[in-house]
Amino acid sequence: MSLGPDQIRHLAKLARIAIDDRDAGTLADELGAILGIIDRLLAIDTTGVVPMAHAHDSVVALRDDAVTEGDQRELFQRAAPAVAGGLYLVPKVIE
């Protein structure tokens, strides 16, 4: 399976990564080569095989629905690029 620059631009849009035309061309070649090894999977007969999503087929642990952490908003927001009044600032999304 090879990918064209248009498909690369679409994927980059889905992944929210801005790319230019030169990037699209380079990525098309690189991703095409990677898909070249991945495509070998398509020929394997996996009829009836249960997909393995995790290293152990263990039951996901559940814990009590109890408060275990205090409010650390200020501490956590110290790492944010822009905050005000305890809120994360983003560009206006509603006109």
Partner: peptide
């Protein structure tokens, strides 16, 4: 498909 081969 990859998850199935992972199991194999």
């Amino acid at each position: 498909k990859a998850q199935q081969v992972r199991r194999l």
